[in-house]
Write a protein that binds this DNA or RNA. Structure first.
Lengths: 335, 335
DNA sequence: TGCTATACTGAAAGTGCTTTCATAAAAGTA
DNA sequence: TACTTTTATGAAAGCACTTTCAGTATAGCA
């Protein structure tokens, strides 16, 4: 990333004013040591060329407090956007600068984690749904960079999380309560290495409640689909063709639930009579689409994380906190 | 081991780790170019000595801060998120840091615009859907901060835009072509002062085509609603009760179109038989909800803006460009 | 008028970092 | 086994300044 900017340097000023760079430097730093007339002349040249002693401004800006970084797998999911929205709302209020580092590979994550505590001059860091190993965590602490984790608790940092397993249980209880006896789970169990996997926990809770009440739920009832609307629709299309109806589907994310909805409509089946669908997240979209879902407070998670971070940035003796946000069941049109 | 000053430099680290300063530098900046074992060893030494690279020296050697700023009204609309996504995707590729400034008031915008060229030392700036006055623009140019505008063209900067009026025309032609003779427009015409108002242009184009073909379209056919799903639903609910059916509704944004859809469903009317709905934007959600819409390339706009910015950052003699992205009509289920 | 103290100024040596270039070592390939 | 390619590293040349040191011109004073 080299930029050949032609903003004037001290050399340009010196040449143009017919003096040496030392003199120019002195005009700026020790004006009393340079002759009044040359001083004025140099000053005039400086203005003329629009010279700004960059390094200084730069250093000041880079060192200035008031920067908070967020590392997040930004693109993959709307849920990250909603979390980010929460973070941003708090930062904007307090005039902090928000620096975003998006992670798309494990290498990039590790690189950020390696260098951010050193080179990026941040006052605080928030990690959204990203995995940190113990060693890296220790480095961050050693460098005194306040950090808060979202969705990946680690006892050395404050964190904001939810109980994914309980979420799965809530889903199962709710769907069972509705009288269904035939279930399926939609989700992606193999996750990118840099991310974390709350999906399995949701599945686990779901399965547990079902097995406790002796409902049949074999691996065959788990519809493995990538985190993508159309891909999920595709899988759902196949599975629904042979599925016993009515069926209640718990999708580990709202986005995938949408894929299921599309498949159901495509097959001309009725929602919720033939197929009931319950999502997880409560994205904005869930409301728009009338999707019933297990709600986790996404915006709130970002807000809480930012507040947690600030409280420690202001007073690092404040205790580390692990905040578990509540889940709730939002019933809309699909169940 | 003994450096007279207390803060360790890259030289101290190099000596202590038994490598050259080049290697230390590489560990921080191009880790993939150094052997994994030496990398870890150097990293350990860095931590041990508590080395923090001096921002000033770094910036000087780099002649760039490696930071690009984006000013955006982030929260208000999902469309900003999609644009941002485009920007972020090219920044991440080129290892630039993304600094986000979210604007919620006119004062805050002006504050950012005043201070960013000075204190925040960025290599480039992208303004999304934000209004800049001539004077501010000149200041930015004077400070040699490369800038690209999205959705608010100004001839002194490169820009990425669409033809909103043409979009309105496309909508009208399409809907007319479908055989409708009764129309309504949904949108928000009074916009926040810091933002810009593409909505009126869309309306203008829409109106023009209709009037050319002598379709009745008075102000009464303009449903003024805030940029919000539920608020729009509310207004649509009232209006639809007395509307003559079938009716074709052009909504200036997808988000508001969703509000209309909800209202229509709530009233038990049929889509598109009783009420046809055409949105504008083509958000991800539009696809999920089968919403027909005038598509503007949102992600693409961000990507193009970032590329425009880079090309000027690398070579500021490159000409300023005003890129107009194409619109297209995506027909889905609501028309 | 000659001599010294003083005021200016430029050359050059840092400053702490990045990056290019060259080279040695390691890994493939024939 | 010889030969080419790749990978890992260090030496050295910047980068945009600041500061020290030394030299020159000027003013002050006898």
């Amino acid at each position: 990333m080299l930029s050949r900017k032609n903003t004037p340097t001290i050399y340009d000023v010196a040449r143009s004013a017919g003096v040496s760079i030392s003199t120019v430097s002195r005009v700026l730093n020790n004006p009393e040591r340079v002759n009044e007339s040359t001083r004025l002349h140099v000053l005039a040249t400086i203005d003329e060329l629009g010279f700004i002693p960059k390094a200084e401004a730069r250093a000041r800006a880079l060192r200035s407090s008031g920067r908070v970084g967020v590392i997040t797998p930004f693109f993959t999911a709307p849920s990250f956007v909603q979390r980010l929205r929460g973070v941003a709302s708090v930062l904007t209020e307090s005039n902090y600068e928000l620096v975003i580092f998006t992670v798309d590979t494990l290498e990039r994550l590790q690189h950020y984690l390696d260098t951010i505590p050193l080179t990026h001059n941040l006052d605080g860091l928030i990690l959204i749904s990203v995995r940190v190993d113990e060693k890296t965590a220790e480095r961050i602490i050693q460098h005194k960079l306040e950090t808060v984790l979202i969705e990946y608790p680690l006892n050395m940092f404050s964190s904001v999380e939810i109980d994914d397993e309980e979420g799965g249980k809530m889903a199962a209880r709710f769907l069972k309560g509705k009288g269904y006896s035939n279930f399926a789970f939609v989700g992606e169990t193999n996750f990118p290495k840099y991310g974390i996997n709350p999906i399995s926990s949701r599945l686990k809770g779901f399965q547990q409640v079902l097995s406790e009440s002796n409902v049949e739920f074999s691996d065959d009832h788990i519809w493995e689909t990538p985190y993508h609307v159309d891909a999920t629709r595709f899988v759902a299309l196949e599975r629904l063709k042979t599925a016993k109806l009515p069926i209640a589907i718990f999708s580990a994310t709202d986005l995938q639930a949408i894929g299921v909805i599309k498949a159901v409509k495509q097959l001309g089946l009725r929602i919720p009579d033939d197929v009931a669908i319950l999502g997880f997240d409560d994205l904005d979209i869930a409301d728009y689409m009338e999707l019933s879902t297990v709600r986790q407070p996404l915006d709130e998670s970002g807000r809480v994380a930012a507040e947690l971070l600030f409280s420690r940035m202001l007073d690092s003796t404040r205790p580390i906190q692990h905040i578990r946000l509540p889940l709730s069941l939002i019933e809309r049109g699909t169940t």
